[in-house]
Design a protein around this nucleic acid. Structure first.
Length: 588
RNA sequence: GCGUCUGUAGCUCAGUUGGAUAGAGCAACUGCCUUCUAAGCAGUGGGUCGGGGGUUCGAAUCUCUCCAGACGCACCA
């Protein structure tokens, strides 16, 4: 005696229920003679101890609005929802029946719990199976033009695991946002104008002269990494130039370092669209001014800059969250890093993105207020600039913290980690945690091929499904070449007979929610929701695999139904991993 | 001292706009390989969600305060 609710279009269960409840609220308002006003409530999966498919807190939230106790309200709403006189049918054209309510119960302080008929889930399954790309990834054409800037490490040495976290987050977000239909550019800002560059150049020059046989002490604050000595040696081997003053060490070392970084990122499966050089900000155009001059003029015209002791300070304290004013032009006339960063970010605004995301290590958090303030001063909408801060990564090997000091070249490089544990595990471990938490990257664990290691656990689920598919084609020759890209409506009755276990429904619910997970990840710029979700889904699959035999030679309908289910699991795992930049192997 | 982030099972961590009896993996113990990949599955034990106040019908989640830890407070980048 269930009530079938028809909805046209592409909404799935939760959304349909929400719409349904809203209609019931409207009806109640008419009965109570009060004006209908929308308010926010949830439709959620209830906790395990409640035997229902979905629950809503609408009566708890709406109690004050209707001036009734949640309990009474829930009884009234229940009656309206189950009454036959309300026609919720909303189907002028072709209609799909998605919700078939079996029962509604009022429990707790006023929760309404919905028990749905199996058909609700199977209709949904059929719908998203047939429209996967659209269902999971469509964004109602609300796409944005987005710039993602990340890594932007000084080109003074190889990338380490901390840079890799930023790279993994940035690249994964880029994949996610692209999948959701946005136009995304990724960018690496190269600090090639500052003091660090000079020190780097001198480091190479001194190493080169040492190669030539000069006895020079290597200065304290210079880059001591072996890679510089190697570059110096190679340089001498190549050209054999004795007069080092003829050599343009700066250009050589910059290009060399960028080559290294580019190859490391490539190896890490990270794509950078734009390489933006700091020197571009300082290049004079035909009128003899550069980006920095233009920015300075605006700020000076607005009286936001003052001279103290010959240096120029930007007044960030008075009008922003920043706690003090900041120098932007030094006493000697050289701009600070902050100055070129203002001009760089202004340049981003001029390029006209709807959203600019910067991904920084959390040790730079103090920098956020001043860069936001400066953008505001220039008349830009600071809401368009979103800064993601991620906490540090420490490496653990055999239960011991690996010492990392970026000074003196004592660090494990990204490439070394990749060589030790592989690309997939490295990316997964870096994406597994919320950016607000530091990561303890356990190298020993990441190497293991057991279920202790989450990335193997997920990949194994995917490989297993492919292995089952292979067996399926062997057992059922008549389906060779059949790819199951669509389920026809007539199969619904078959599904109803064969996907009716608790686990079937639980997996279908989990599959439906992939869309939600992607939306959360997009909203919070947090790929780690996806890692958690995939672990859950993989767990449900492994459990299912052990409990039920997918292939049953004597029952082709049962086999086909289960094949469709696991094919959809494979689709979601593959796409989830793709967003993380991780491969989904077909065999292991 | 000021600011940002963190504090959830022995360990590493999930916990979405505040929702009903707070979850997973590891570690410990017990089962499951003639059966689609045991690189797997099932079960048991394990918690005053750092402490205390406040808001709320309802708080791990919001707020205040205290405690502990990490990081940051340059005319470095």
């Amino acid at each position: 005696m269930g009530k079938r609710i028809k909805f046209r279009g592409r909404k799935l269960i939760k959304k349909d229920l929400k719409n349904l409840i809203n209609l019931a609220l409207k009806k109640l308002c008419v009965l109570e003679k009060i004006n209908y006003k929308e308010f926010d409530f949830n439709v959620e999966v209830p906790p395990k101890n409640i035997k229902a498919d979905y629950a809503t807190n609408v009566c708890l939230v709406g109690a004050r609005y209707f001036k009734k106790s949640p309990k009474i309200l829930s009884e009234e709403l229940k009656n309206i929802l189950l009454s036959e006189d309300i026609d919720f049918i909303n189907s002028k054209k072709e209609s799909k029946i998605f919700i078939n309510i079996k029962n509604i119960t009022c429990l707790g302080q006023g929760f309404l719990n919905f028990d749905l008929d199996l058909s609700s889930f199977l209709y949904s399954f059929l719908y998203f199976y047939n429209n996967k790309e659209y269902y999971f990834f469509n964004n109602d054409d609300k796409f944005k033009k987005i710039l993602l800037e990340f890594v932007s490490a000084n080109p003074t040495g190889p990338l380490h695991i901390g840079h890799a976290r930023g790279a993994a987050i940035g690249d994964s977000l880029s994949r996610l946002l692209k999948k959701k239909g946005h136009i995304v550019e990724t960018e690496y800002y190269v600090n090639n104008a500052g003091n660090q560059m000079n020190i780097l150049k001198e480091s190479l020059e001194i190493r080169y002269r040492q190669v030539l046989g000069e006895k020079i002490d290597f200065p304290e604050n210079h880059y001591m990494g072996d890679y510089i000595t190697e570059i110096a040696r190679d340089l001498y081997e190549e050209k054999r130039i004795k007069d080092y003053k003829q050599i343009d060490f700066k250009t050589i070392i910059l290009n060399k370092m960028l080559d290294i970084i580019k190859s490391e990122l490539k190896r890490f499966n990270v794509e950078i669209d734009n390489w933006f050089f700091e020197t571009k900000i300082l290049e004079k155009d035909s009128s003899g001014t550069n980006d920095l001059d233009r920015v300075m003029k605006i700020l000076e015209d607005k009286n936001l800059i003052k001279d103290i002791d010959g240096a120029k300070w930007l007044n960030t304290a008075e009008f922003s969250e920043d706690d003090k004013d900041r120098v932007i032009i030094r006493k000697d006339g050289r701009p600070t890093y902050f100055a070129s960063d203002i001009a760089y970010h202004e340049n981003k605004y001029i390029r006209n993105y709807d959203l600019m995301i910067d991904i920084w290590g959390a040790d730079h958090h103090g920098y956020v207020p001043r860069i936001k303030a400066s953008m505001e001063y220039l008349g830009n909408d600071k809401e368009k600039l979103h800064i993601i801060l991620y906490q540090l990564v420490s490496l653990i090997r055999d239960g011991e913290k690996v010492a990392m000091s970026t000074r003196k070249g004592e660090f494990i490089s990204l490439v070394e980690v990749l060589e030790e544990v592989g690309l997939d595990a490295t990316r997964f471990f870096l994406l597994m945690r919320s950016t607000d938490n530091p990561i303890e990257f356990d190298l020993s664990l990441a190497k293991k091929s057991t279920n202790e290691n989450p990335v193997f656990y997920i990949e194994y689920a995917h490989a297993r499904i492919h292995s089952i598919m292979k067996n399926f084609y062997n057992e059922f020759h008549e389906y060779n070449g059949f790819i199951f890209d669509k389920i026809e409506d007539k199969y619904l009755s078959i599904l109803e007979k064969n996907l009716n276990q608790e686990e079937d429904i639980s997996i279908i619910k989990t599959l439906i929610s992939f869309k939600e997970i992607l939306n959360f990840a997009e909203r919070d710029f947090s790929p780690h929701y996806i890692t958690t979700y995939l672990l859950d889904l993989a767990g449900k699959f492994h459990n299912y695999y052990n409990k039920y035999k997918i292939i049953d030679k004597a029952n082709s309908n049962k086999t086909l139904s289960r094949i469709l289910l696991i094919k959809e699991i494979a689709f979601v795992i593959k796409n989830g991993l793709e967003i993380l930049g991780i491969t989904a192997p077909e065999s292991m």
